[in-house]
Amino acid sequence: MTEETTDLATRLRELAESPAPPMALDLDAAKRAGRRRRRFRVSAAAGGCAAVIVAASVVLPPLLDGPSPAPQASSPSDPARPPVPTAKTAAGANPMIAKAGFGWLPEVIRGVEYGVGAHGDYTLAIGDGQYPAMIWLAVYDKEPPADRLGEMGGEAVKVPTKVGDRDGYWVTVNPADPLNGGDSYLRWRTGDGRWAELNAYYLDIPDVRQTLLRVAEGVTVGDYPVPLPLRISGLPGGFHLADGLLSRRPSQDGVPWTMQLFYTVNGANVVIDVRPEGGGAPDGRGEPVCTTENSLRACVRIDRPNAADLGSIGGAQGLLDRITLLGPDERDWTTTVIG
């Protein structure tokens, strides 16, 4: 190095070591997102063998009954059970369509998350705490490779089992431990000839094996629109859904749930964010325009308003005016979101 570049190196080190705010790195979030990406990538690479990630038929509170043969709509008068997504909606009326449903879930599960779109479709039955119990459910058109995620170092083996009266198997690196050291995979052939998979971890409960078999028995396959907490009277042409998320991470951010719909419009990004009132503000680029109604807060944010060109509907405020918030009671949410 010359003297000049040596000095540059010194200055770069000084700059790198200059005072900084506390680091904001969320390792668990990275792992969760990484798992989603792997699932999406592997399923996309399966050549049309789409990973059809499934819906839970029931959200909070978890069902403690026996497994149900299909998602059952609950009576509106039953306060213990939110309604179940059973009916198909008109094409485009719901941006979040799950492809199958959980039935029975163990008590440790506190809710179900959904994600659809460019970053992968998923449904996750989740507990709470720093390492919440997680049960992922996916459906494949074809039987996936034993080590679908390529992380068992060529040691994956199948241990046969039965899910009800259907043939299935555990995937593990140790035949003596079908639960694979707590990162458990259970697969079985569904009634329509496809393959379903549960992947569970952080499951700190008695008899995990029987619990997962019982969860598997309750799984049903079908298209189920996910009830959402808003109704949009209509979206202008050119809106394309990039991602949709319904998250439930109260132990991380203190917010019971958040729902976000990410749209692209003329190359700009439009985000509709709904969460309980007092649940904080959504992050992101663009000044949010917000409203509060029925104890929920909705915000619309556009990163580049000129490019979005929503003047004909009144911009972000105009879009917000098209939104009706349905309140925090999930029994009041709708599967007919748009239109």
């Binding site: 390792l27 997102a33 990484g34």
Partner: peptide, 11 residues
Amino acid sequence: LVQTGVTKLYT
């Protein structure tokens, strides 16, 4: 950037 990079690393 680190969050995104670390996520890719995990993937």
